[in-house]
Design a protein around this nucleic acid. Structure first.
Lengths: 331, 331
DNA sequence: TTGTAGGCGTTATCAC
DNA sequence: GTGATAACGCCTACAA
């Protein structure tokens, strides 16, 4: 069928073990021979068989990335960046959009050297715990897991947002996000909001919190509509990119201009934001830092298990856009 | 390291070939033995080694999907659907975000049974042609390729759009899309527009065409701004989802209401559209039909090469939204 | 019904 | 420098 090193051996008139060496650029083979072999391989259109290679070497130089929610646009940039970084380290990366448990099983079957899991909030379908045979790194869901985790200091991020708004002169600040008690990530944001508001000596009544039932733009839209008609905040902090989309839509329908009538700070600074009507000011960890941390962590985990601490919290930054401005006096 | 069938054999007190049979649910093994083996496997946390399995069977029951432009949101729904369908057929699917040539090489290394390539317009980096050893199906780039192609009847799609608009009473209709001569797909749309307009007896002067330099929302935005200020069409047909986003933004800035002042018909009916400010009317092939066609084609291609015709054109439909309405009299 | 043996494509360890 | 040869984990005749 497919061309193997034996075919190359036949073609170039050497033994197949020599071919193997030549192909791996071993110093134990004469340059002449090497060239000859390489040419034959080229000519025959040889592709190495990873299955065989992995079988003997026990290494695949491949990492698997589990990403069940590919429609969550927020992560595409991160995934691309990670791919770039592992490629630079001479690794392959393959993705799966299956649920974590299934994907992990598949990846293990393919002998990947390491796995990254992008879990979505509460959907914590932890992979079979017995499956400790391959390094697994999880993005974002602290707690539950046995595996090392890269997480964002969500609390701090919200602090930054509140701080920015108070510095601009806002005091009537609301938060819109999921208050689902099962979602640790969202909980962090919410309690970060309370903390920061208290710290600034601002009141936080219940009506200052726009509670969404989910994380889609529509959830944000509904919550924003309610919040913006009930109370009249001068500033809004959003718990996620998608929610921000909903907020923009609600504001538009209510004829509320941003940032003239309402300041908005979004969560996560991602490229997709560029396509929104308004250039959003946002808080979050820069994609590049995240990707670098994740890749370096996973690789060191591959080289020596237990080499990294269980949870690593990344520090967020504020990215200035055009959606936050000083409040108008007496709206 | 990892647990193998030999470990299971030892554990359950049978030979490893019996284990192999039991694991594959062969009828040649006594139910009792089978149960015993299965339990042992479960207990030990056995994961089959695909590398070894593929090596001997020459089949991986895995298909690879090449998707370099994961940030093109338009395709996530299609990818998810395809994954769903192949899973139902007991296949695995892995993705790569690398360029087509690299990804194909990798997938072949992993011994995938078939490959789907999502090419983006003109970036036709055709994989090494010698590489005919695995069935490859391409989405959307007719011409060039040697591999079977699933394509959309773009011409017809635009016809539908024009027809819908004329039925609503529009006669001043413009098209915004890429006129890059290297992009076959875009060319089709443009010539479809000319055809349909002629068929309806409508004039198409140069100024009716909004030519973009690319396919991003910003390209659409620029073109739309120009078009909407220069001429005053009552309806606009967009060549892509991203361009539609730009059109919406431009219209907003110019205080043009949709659909009151301007009807817009977008391209591709995808879930992401739900997050836009305006619910767009669109033309395109329903995601589900596309996914089904692609999967069934690939699988039959795997079973018997040359079993499907080279190019298959899918028929588009019009999906009614809220962005197309009768024109106002005398704007 | 179960066990034995050969081989899948590759690398690595030896002799030559 | 180069060429046999033994693994790697699994499947599949074929033998018992």
């Amino acid at each position: 069928m497919s061309v193997t090193i034996k075919d190359i051996a036949k073609e170039s008139g050497v033994s197949y073990s020599t071919v193997s060496k030549a192909l791996n650029d071993s110093p134990l083979v004469k340059p002449d021979t090497k060239k000859k072999v390489l040419q034959a391989a080229e000519m025959l259109g040889y592709t190495p068989n990873f299955a065989a290679k992995n079988l003997v070497s026990k290494k695949s130089r491949t990492i698997g990335l589990v990403w069940p929610a590919i429609d969550r646009a927020a992560l595409t940039a991160l995934v691309s960046k990670i791919n770039e970084l592992v490629t630079a380290q001479n690794y392959f990366m393959i993705l799966s959009v299956d649920a974590a448990d299934k994907a992990v099983g598949m990846f293990k079957g393919f002998q990947v050297d390491g796995i990254v899991i992008f879990e979505e909030g509460k959907e914590t379908k932890l992979p079979p715990q017995a499956a400790a045979s391959v390094p697994i790194l999880t993005y974002g869901v602290s707690g539950e897991h046995v595996h090392p985790i890269i997480d964002v200091n969500h609390r701090k991020a919200i602090h930054l947002a509140v701080q920015h708004l108070t510095e601009l002169g806002h005091s009537s600040i609301s938060f819109i996000g999921s208050t689902d008690p099962g979602d640790k990530r969202q909980e962090e944001k919410l309690s970060g909001f309370y903390e920061a508001m208290n710290f600034s000596g601002l009141s936080v009544s219940e009506e200052r919190i726009g509670s969404t039932n989910g994380l889609s733009w529509y959830d944000g839209y509904l919550a924003a509509r309610k919040l913006l008609t009930d109370s009249k905040p001068t500033a809004l902090i959003s718990g996620s990119y998608d929610i921000s989309v909903g907020i923009l839509r609600a504001a538009k329908e209510l004829n509320i201009r941003i940032p003239e009538d309402l300041s908005v700070i979004s969560y996560d600074n991602i490229p997709q934001m560029a396509s929104l009507e308004t250039e959003l000011t946002s808080v979050g960890v820069p994609i590049d830092s995240l990707a670098e941390k994740m890749v370096s962590s996973l690789l060191s985990l591959i080289q020596q298990p237990d080499s990294i601490s269980h949870t690593q919290l990344m520090e967020p930054e504020l990215a200035a856009g055009k959606s936050a401005a000083p409040p108008k006096k007496h709206l």
